[in-house]
Every structure is written in structure tokens, then in C-alpha cells.
């Protein structure tokens, strides 16, 4: 039994040690560069390198979900998405129905392909070997353009602090100055609700929740967010959740460690001045 951890980014490589410890296995790392080809070609290359491993893992992200399920298809593997707990090498826990329930899944065949949320895995085992992907099959899909988010803020899923805003932020400029400004003051990332993204206040890739990014920072500050099930599914592994909302009955106050009933446009500048 041995794990191949597929690292889609530099910080993902360290997370492999946490999962390997939980599985009680030795592991190797396969590094995927930022210039990786589209999923059809990349999945073939990963599947080829996965020969001989009982388990293949990656940290949950849009890229890993795109590629790893295809790897599982090629390998005729059992797959478990968004693992939050390892009970044994064949039994895993994962959230379902927008995180309202936890499912225990048993895998019945090898190999096993896993995507996992690193927050629950704190082990620090070190990799046996670390190699980069090389052999690449011809691409069927062609990447014709890429537009990446600019700016210097940390990645949402890796940030120690996340400041998120909802629709009360009104427009993109207000969102950027209020939410972005507090995020910068804390050295954190900015996030948003689906409502804020849908109304054009925040960029798509900032969406936090069931169908967006799953975050687990040390500190999550939700400003002007009521706390829908779908949004809470994306933040509930955060260490400390702060809610700032002027509606004292907003559901988010039931989840928040610290709730402040206040107008975010008054509270956030004061908060910013004190850090």
C-alpha cells in the first residue's frame, strides 16, 4: 500500500504528508506545473505514473476535480471526493448535500483516487520521492486563452485569513475598497457570496460555498452575509468565524464564533484602523 500524492501547486505538496500520515502509508509526490496540458492529456500522464500505487490523492480544487476524476476513470478506480477524515485505508468521511450531512464511504476496489480538504490533516510525514510530470500524451483539447486573477493576495483556499462580503457591498468598487481593503490589512484573501458574484460585485473565482471555493482559514470574517446553507458549507472548517451584519436575526450568527450586530460600512473601517 503506497500513496501517490499529486501536487497541483507548491503548497499542495506539503498537504500530502498529512493525508499519508492519516492513511499510515509512505508516499511519493508528483508535481504538476502551472503549464500543465488540458485534462485529457494530463490525466493520461498521471494515470501512467500512478501504476503500482494503491492510493492516488490531490488536494480538492477545481483543477484537481477536473483531472483526478478522469484519472479515476482511466484507472477503473474507486473515487472519493472531498475527504475530510480517514477512518482506514478503505473507509472515508466526506460532506454531502452542501455539507448538511457527513457520509462514510467504503471503497471496494483498488486503486483508490481521493481528493481531500487539507484542513483536517495535520501530519508532517515527508515524501519518499518528488518528481515532476513529464510524459504527456497528445492533447485533444487546445487551450486558446487564459485570464488569471491579478493582484498579490494569497490564494483563497490557502489563506490564513479570509474576508468575505455579500450583496450589501453594492458594487465592485465598494467591494474592492471595503472587503479588499480589510483583507489587505490582514494579509488575507477576499471572498464573496454567490449573490455578490451573480450581481457582478465580485469576480467568479472569489465565490465561497458549496459550488465555489471551500476555505478553512484561521480567521474568516463574513461581512453583510446572511449565512445560507450553501455558503456555510464552504466555510465551516474555519477555525474562527466572525460575522458582521446589521440584521440581528441573520442565520450566520448561529454559526459565528463572534457576532457583531453593526453596519459593515461603519464597523469595518474602525476594525481596519485597529489592526
Amino acid at each position: 500500500m503506497k500513496l501517490l500524492h499529486v501536487a497541483f501547486g507548491a503548497s499542495d505538496a506539503d498537504s500530502g504528508g498529512g493525508l499519508a500520515s492519516a492513511l499510515g502509508m509512505e508516499f511519493d509526490v508528483l508535481e504538476i506545473g502551472s503549464d500543465a496540458p488540458p485534462a485529457d492529456s494530463l490525466a493520461k500522464a498521471i494515470a501512467q505514473r500512478a501504476q503500482g500505487y494503491s492510493h492516488v490523492s490531490a488536494v480538492s480544487s477545481m483543477q484537481s476535480k477536473d483531472v483526478m476524476a478522469r484519472v479515476a476513470g482511466i484507472l477503473e478506480a474507486a473515487m472519493v471526493t472531498d475527504v475530510i477524515q480517514v477512518d482506514s485505508a478503505t473507509v472515508f468521511k466526506r460532506p454531502i448535500v452542501a455539507g448538511t450531512m457527513v457520509e462514510t464511504v467504503e471503497t471496494l476496489v483498488n486503486p483508490v483516487v481521493l481528493t481531500f480538504r487539507p484542513a483536517g490533516f495535520k501530519g508532517r510525514a515527508s515524501a519518499g520521492s518528488s518528481t515532476a510530470i513529464v510524459s504527456v500524451a497528445p492533447e485533444k483539447a487546445t487551450r486558446i486563452s487564459v485570464s488569471a486573477r491579478g493582484g498579490s493576495r494569497p490564494d483563497l483556499t490557502q489563506a490564513k485569513v479570509v474576508v468575505s462580503g455579500g450583496r450589501p457591498l453594492k458594487d465592485a468598487a465598494t467591494f474592492e475598497s471595503v472587503i479588499g481593503g480589510l483583507a489587505d490589512a490582514l494579509g488575507g484573501a477576499a471572498g464573496a457570496t454567490r449573490a455578490a458574484v451573480d450581481s457582478g460585485i465580485a469576480a467568479n473565482e472569489l465565490q465561497v460555498g458549496q459550488t465555489g471555493k471551500i476555505v478553512a482559514p484561521d480567521l474568516y470574517i463574513a461581512a453583510g452575509i446572511s449565512g445560507s446553507t450553501q455558503h456555510m458549507a464552504g466555510i465551516k472548517d474555519s477555525k474562527v468565524i466572525v460575522a458582521i451584519n446589521k440584521d440581528p436575526d441573520a442565520p450566520i450568527f448561529e454559526f459565528a464564533d463572534f457576532g457583531l450586530v453593526a453596519d459593515l460600512f461603519e464597523a469595518i473601517p474602525v476594525l481596519k484602523s485597529k489592526i
Partner: peptide
């Protein structure tokens, strides 16, 4: 099937938080 559902349960609730009065 290559996987089997063993159990479905409610997640452990987050400990209740508190309201603070000021920034």
C-alpha cells in the same frame, strides 16, 4: 459499485458563539 455508502450522519455542530458589543 466500486464504493459503498456505509452511513450518513449529521456533522458535529459548531460550538455556539457569542455576540460582541463593539469592534
Amino acid at each position: 459499485p466500486k464504493t459503498r455508502r456505509v452511513r450518513v450522519e449529521s456533522p458535529p455542530p459548531r460550538a455556539a458563539g457569542i455576540k460582541v458589543g463593539s469592534v
